[in-house]
Design a protein around this nucleic acid. Structure first.
Lengths: 209, 209
DNA sequence: ATTGACTGGTAATCTGCGTTACCGTATCAA
DNA sequence: TTGATACGGTAACGCAGATTACCAGTCAAT
């Protein structure tokens, strides 16, 4: 019996992730309002009934979609952030991973829909920001505060400095990606960009000597 | 007769700007898809017929709306950019004006709808970017290239440096504004932010001495 | 003053889509 | 095996909103 129950639950989970995958394609491609439940169902077969019993409504599906994708995208960034002995190395490492994240199609998709629905779903926007970019900035701010305490750099406000570091990394390129005007960088370009961005930042905050 | 024609044209123009103003409220508030022509008309009275004869379609109205707003927003930024003798002063000046722009409700509104419709209207997204952020970056890049030629700073790629300068200015704050999570900065905060951002950037690119 | 063209308003049309009602079928306990 | 329960599918419902047809008032020129 537990066998049967288990396999049924497994089916449910598989179905759920299939729906979310299909929904990602549709919603991230076309935006919330233009996306239709029918379009989601077309990609995986089955019935709309299914979506409504699992997610309650179009909005419910959307919120689940954004929440899970945001978590999956940002979790590794912060949790797998390794702190090296050398500040430059730590920041470069982070920069590379942040740029990879920003260059991913999935990230651009999530960002686009969160932006466009922010007015209607403020809680979703807030949770995206706090569990994503803001969390990452806090992680960097910690690193910077420690380096500051060691006298390696001089920053008045570590959080602000961290946000500016992330700003250097994004530059205008992230806007180009979000607007779909530019091909994402490949790994080699990301490495170079990360390195020179860290150079600029560390020069900027270095203690005078 | 030319008198009469003129006043009729003036009426047309007044009507047109009234429509665009009302459309700005509706579209920037609710997004393209959720916005309705009816909602636009409700704010100024009159008839939908009006909008269709002037703009052809909902999409035509939207494109006119975005184009005109983008132009109005970015034109002063670049055209009134004054180049002082001192690089720091020039950049600080620019920074203050860019931050004021980014803090404006109107700018956030335009950016939100451009992002959310970028996939469906790629030309609109491209023209927004090229006549806006990219143009501004080019202006800064020029300034930087000149300073570099004078030996005041050391940058390999002035355009990239300019984009990074703009990135420092935005930090994460612009995302907070776009997601409606944060109150825009007031003038005093903008001044301070601009100054410390310019400090960071100029330290970062200063020629070693 | 009259005619003719045009601007603007009301109200219908038509489509697309979120949501739900209803029905067949498969699963599981007894 | 059988009855009950719940799941999935089909097809309809209802609504919202873009677009348009048609009508009335208005202004200019003769």
């Amino acid at each position: 019996m537990s066998q049967a129950v288990k396999s049924r639950r497994a089916d449910q989970d598989a179905r759920r992730t299939a729906i979310l995958d299909a929904a990602a394609e549709v919603f991230f491609e076309q935006g919330y309002a233009a996306a239709s439940i029918d379009a989601v169902i077309e990609r995986i077969g089955g019935s709309k009934r299914n979506i409504y019993s699992m997610f309650g409504s179009k909005e419910g599906l959307f919120i689940a979609l954004v929440t899970e994708n945001a978590r999956r995208l940002f979790d590794p960034l912060v949790n797998e952030g390794t702190v090296h002995k050398d500040l430059r190395e730590t920041l470069t490492d982070f920069a590379i991973r942040l740029l990879h994240l920003f260059m991913s199609r999935r990230m651009a998709g999530v960002y686009r829909v969160v932006v466009s629905e922010a007015a209607r779903l403020p809680d979703l926007a807030a949770s995206f920001y706090r569990n994503g970019p803001d969390l990452a900035a806090s992680w960097v701010a910690d690193i910077l505060a420690q380096a500051c305490a060691r006298g390696e750099i001089q920053v008045d406000d570590p959080k602000l400095a961290a946000q500016r570091f992330m700003g250097i990394l994004r530059g205008n390129l992230y806007m180009e990606i979000v607007l779909d005007l530019s091909r994402p960088m490949d790994s080699a370009e990301i490495d170079n960009t990360a390195r020179s961005a860290v150079d600029l930042f560390l020069n900027g905050v270095k203690t005078k000597s």
